[in-house]
């Protein structure tokens, strides 16, 4: 009995040694890589000499992906990878000081501003492009030509309308099928804020985080209505019918011009990137931010968003310059 226990202890020790070996292997690897490039940890958090840490909204992602692609083609030494943690998740990291640029498809919230102040992080807000939220119905829908903002509110607000005839007595007595982006998306937040005035969205609305699901949902259903980013409409023009929105000055359809010059409202929303002022001291980040500002408009158009006006980009440039000067 005694002997058996002894062996047991020994075997356990052996097992431990095996796992320790495994762990040891990792450690040596750690050390090797650590001494290889200064500190591995620093490289990972994006504070390395040629790294830029960018995270945030998935809506802004295609623009920044294009920017990084172009920038790295010109400056192969610079590493500017982009994460997609969502606008909120991006700000969380921004507040934690982990990122240099934080992309957002909405304004920074008061709470987040407070937290940034507490953390002692100064930042500037750069609008990069517009996204025109497009309200669409199926091409089989023959009764809607345009909607006023009030009608849109009645359609999507919880407990207001059940059938199309509740909205307008000339419209059919058929139940409204609503499709909306999911609650995590900035698109949803913006719509609820601007159109529903922070009311609740209809409980019958079908929500999806994937806008392509909304497109499919509305395509063949004459009683369906949906809203989503302009790019998803632009890609599916053949199978969708756009609904011009009337905000008191007659119905206006979202197009590159109406979104760009601001006449398509209130559903044009700006897309931002927030830049940590301190990071602008680093030359490669300042250069990257300037590059972003100079090229965002053109690249935004390429990936399905709408550019800002030239004046707005000039204002941005000035803001960057001042912030960089302040930081020094």
């Amino acid at each position: 009995m005694r002997m058996k226990k002894g062996w047991m202890a020994l075997s356990l020790a052996g097992l431990m040694a095996v796992s320790a070996c495994g762990g040891g292997g990792e450690e040596t690897e750690e050390e090797a890589s650590g001494s290889g490039e200064g500190s591995g940890e620093e490289a990972a958090s994006g504070e390395g000499e040629n790294e830029i840490a960018i995270d945030g909204s998935s809506t802004v992602f295609p623009i920044m992906e294009a920017v990084s692609e172009e920038y790295q083609a010109e400056n192969p030494d610079i590493r500017a990878p982009i994460g997609v943690s969502g606008s909120g998740g991006g700000f969380e990291r921004f507040i934690g000081g982990e990122t240099d640029l934080s992309n957002a498809s909405r304004d920074i919230e008061d709470e987040e501003v407070e937290q940034l102040e507490e953390a002692g992080i100064d930042y500037i807000e750069l609008p990069l492009a517009y996204d025109g939220l497009s309200v669409v119905v199926s091409q089989e829908n023959d009764f809607i030509d345009s909607l006023t903002v009030e009608e849109l509110q009645t359609i999507f607000m919880d407990g207001e309308a059940e059938t199309w005839s509740d909205v307008n007595s000339e419209w059919p007595d058929e139940p409204i099928e609503r499709f909306s982006p999911g609650t995590d998306s900035g698109t949803f937040d913006y719509f609820v804020e601007e159109v529903l005035e922070d009311g609740d969205i209809s409980r019958d609305a079908q929500l999806s985080e994937d806008d392509n699901v909304l497109v499919t949902g509305v395509q063949s259903n004459p009683n369906a209505i949906a809203y989503f980013g302009y790019a998803y409409y632009a890609e599916n023009q053949d199978s969708l019918k756009i609904v011009p929105i009337d905000n008191g000055d007659g119905p206006i359809e979202p197009t590159e011009e109406t979104i760009n010059d601001g006449t398509y409202e209130p559903l044009s929303r700006p897309l931002f990137t927030y830049v940590k002022t301190e990071s602008l001291q680093e030359e490669h980040i300042l250069d990257y931010v300037n590059f972003t500002n100079e090229n965002a408009g053109e690249l935004a158009l390429e990936v399905g968003y709408i550019n800002l006006t030239d004046e707005e980009y000039e204002e941005n440039a000035q803001m960057i310059e001042e912030a960089a000067a302040d930081a020094e």
Binding site: E29, A32, G36, A43, E69, P81, V84, S85, R93
Partner: peptide, 21 residues
């Protein structure tokens, strides 16, 4: 996604501390 692996990355990892997708 939770631990923040990246979505756009134009370089390959060169050690275990590299960022990745």
């Amino acid at each position: 996604i939770m631990i923040g692996a990246l979505t756009y990355i134009a370089f390959l990892p060169d050690n275990v501390f590299s960022q990745f997708t």
